[in-house]
Write a protein that binds this DNA or RNA. Sequence first.
DNA 1: TGACAAATAAGAGCTAATCCTATTTAGTAG
DNA 2: CTACTAAATAGGATTAGCTCTTATTTGTCA
Lengths: 153, 153
Amino acid sequence: MREVMKKKDIEVKFRVFEDRCRQSGLKVTPQRVAVYKALIGTDLHPTAEEVHRMVKQDIHSISLDTVNRTLLTLAEIGAAFQVEGTGQRRRFDGDLENHQHFRCIKCGKIVDFHHKPFDNIDIPAQLHGQFQVMRKTVYLEGLCQTCSAVSSS
Amino acid sequence: MREVMKKKDIEVKFRVFEDRCRQSGLKVTPQRVAVYKALIGTDLHPTAEEVHRMVKQDIHSISLDTVNRTLLTLAEIGAAFQVEGTGQRRRFDGDLENHQHFRCIKCGKIVDFHHKPFDNIDIPAQLHGQFQVMRKTVYLEGLCQTCSAVSSS
DNA sequence: TGACAAATAAGAGCTAATCCTATTTAGTAG
DNA sequence: CTACTAAATAGGATTAGCTCTTATTTGTCA
């Protein structure tokens, strides 16, 4: 559904990002910018290693540790999200728009899906005092078509 | 809301579990049973290591690997769930009843909450062919009270 | 009761993530 | 433009959670 972002859009988002960094007292380093741009330029829920591979094309010397640290930082300032799921390997998502996830409990695959009614669910009033909610996701688990076929045979 | 399960309830669930194992062609070993009972007897989303510690009281020689393997198996046959979340450490949940999770993006804490309307959300029709949905969770991310206070100071 | 596939224990091995430290750099004030 | 300082980075070492391997044990079913 969502197309991979165009260069121009990335530039626009970048200014917002830059502001957000300075507000949080974070330096706008080339590494940080490169990681951010790489992340919002894909919709594949990349791992740190995958982002590292992408970013290396621009900044040859960037370390995996920096990418990891930066991705966590982005998640902390709300410029990206960790994808909820499996637990083996951390995956990130630069798409801040509403979308939902399905995860297969057998093969671990995570699939995006969109469903308008889910975009507008209301946070229960009881939570208002307790939490500052920045993201709502409907998370479904079960068997994908492939695994479903295998396990019933 | 949910009280930790009483011994009698655990015994009832255990019979269901036993059947489910045999149906899946799995042996009902003491280790498997102990892990299962430990998991449904708590609501703390334990890690494999935590379950291991609990189970060791009954079966002194049980290995961490067995606990890990068993927990994954339980999740595979639908007798338990992996808690969606963080990505560092795998956590499990033996509570198959409807409940939702909030996760703090700063400290990683996962908190259960209950909200009736979320228990009855409908799976979008578009997914019916693609996935066999076994669990629906509304997953909220943001800042908990503690972290919210710290970051605004 | 015997046979066999499945499960287990124990430890080795693997891999993602984190830590450590010397060096570099963005932001800022002069 | 220059100098300063705290923050960020590179690179390698370390850690920790999880998985694999192998020999042994144990449910299950005939």
